[in-house]
């Protein structure tokens, strides 16, 4: 595997990791707020906070990892995306900042503040929308470059049907992923009431997820037909994604094996996300940046890969420990520890 393919694969894996953990987190914030305003808080919020408390910081790191790695492996991305994303990027940072701090303020400071919970819950749905603009811009057509530098065409982005379909997909996916995870988590906690609420949410958001994916495909077709063509060549990945989706919905509907169902949801997004990523190549930002043209020099690339492997040797056991202690510890999940 060449350095640039290795680099982008690693980064994509981290972005996928962020997609899953952040979706659970973003959705959980929204559901926690929903539970408060619909007066069902006593049931759900404890459950959600038991899951979130030890992991919220880790979620953020996945994201930092991705963008630091991207600039490290592909320094040209800093130049183009940096210039283009100043405004959407700043909005995303501000939302992430509000969300992260108000989570801590609410969770460790004053648990009864509805304002804190609102800020935390509402931003959770806006962040995926803000972040997804980076993916939209990567398709090209929202930037121009001349001798004065790169200009971002905000108007184009706001009026583009493709851009809105991506935003829609981001939001419904968050709700779907989160609900299917929390269904599983509630089931493990033997908290039937919460499980039923979350189960309904999961089923409710399943159809829009697929609907929005189709919209994105349609949007891509008219926006960047080259990319669309490469996606069609990889049809089997999207097909597999759909199969895993159907299994997941079936299991949740039948009230069976919620753990497996969530695994299926993860696989569904894994194939869709990697299918999208693979068909995006060789471009990182169409048509300005390709992975071959922008990859960091070899010395740095090798150093990064080495550090990455060493880092994983440290991270994987640590993450395993974290999950053993909190996610897979039945007593903790049930609130006995």
């Amino acid at each position: 595997m060449s350095l640039e393919v290795l680099g982008i694969t690693v980064l994509w894996l981290f972005l996928y990791g962020y997609l899953i953990v952040a979706s659970i987190d973003f959705g959980a914030g929204f559901f926690a707020y929903y539970a408060r305003v619909s007066k069902r808080e006593h049931i759900m919020s404890k459950l959600i906070s038991r899951y979130l408390s030890p992991v919220w910081e880790v979620t953020n790191v996945f994201f930092v990892f991705f963008f630091v790695g991207l600039v490290g492996f592909f320094p040209d991305t800093a130049y183009y995306y940096g210039t283009a994303l100043l405004l959407p990027g700043s909005v995303a940072i501000i939302l992430i900042a509000i969300r992260g701090s108000f989570y801590a303020f609410g969770n460790y400071g004053s648990k009864d503040s509805t304002l804190y919970l609102f800020l935390y819950g509402a931003t959770g749905l806006l962040i995926p929308a803000a972040l997804s603009t980076a993916l939209t811009i990567s398709e090209g057509g929202y930037l121009t470059e001349d001798e004065n530098g790169v200009t971002f065409l905000a108007g184009e982005l706001f009026t583009s049907p493709y851009s809105w379909s991506v935003v829609l997909l981001a939001i419904v996916s968050v709700l779907f992923i989160s609900a299917s995870f929390l269904t599983y988590y509630a089931d493990r906690a033997e908290d039937t009431e919460s499980r039923e609420i979350m189960r309904k949410f999961a089923l409710w958001w399943s159809a829009p997820t697929i609907g929005a994916s189709l919209l994105v495909f349609a949007g891509l077709r008219s926006h960047n037909s080259e990319h669309f063509g490469r996606a069609i060549d990889l049809w089997w990945m999207f097909g597999l994604s759909l199969v895993f989706f159907l299994i997941a919905v079936f299991l949740i509907q039948q009230k069976k094996k919620y753990g497996t169902a969530f695994l299926m949801v993860m696989l569904q997004f894994f194939f869709a996300f990697f299918g999208y990523g693979a068909s995006h190549l060789p471009y990182i930002l169409y048509p300005y940046i390709t992975i071959e043209g922008s990859v960091v020099n070899e010395t740095m690339g090798t150093a990064l890969v080495t550090v990455f492997i060493l880092g994983l040797c440290l991270l994987i056991p640590s993450l395993y420990l974290l999950m053993r202690l909190f996610l897979f510890d039945a007593d903790y999940v049930k609130g006995k520890k």
Partner: peptide, 14 residues
């Protein structure tokens, strides 16, 4: 960052 990415990405990453 374009220059830094080439030269100093390692500590940022670490």
């Amino acid at each position: 960052m374009q220059v830094a990415g080439q030269v100093i990405a390692l500590p940022l990453f670490m």
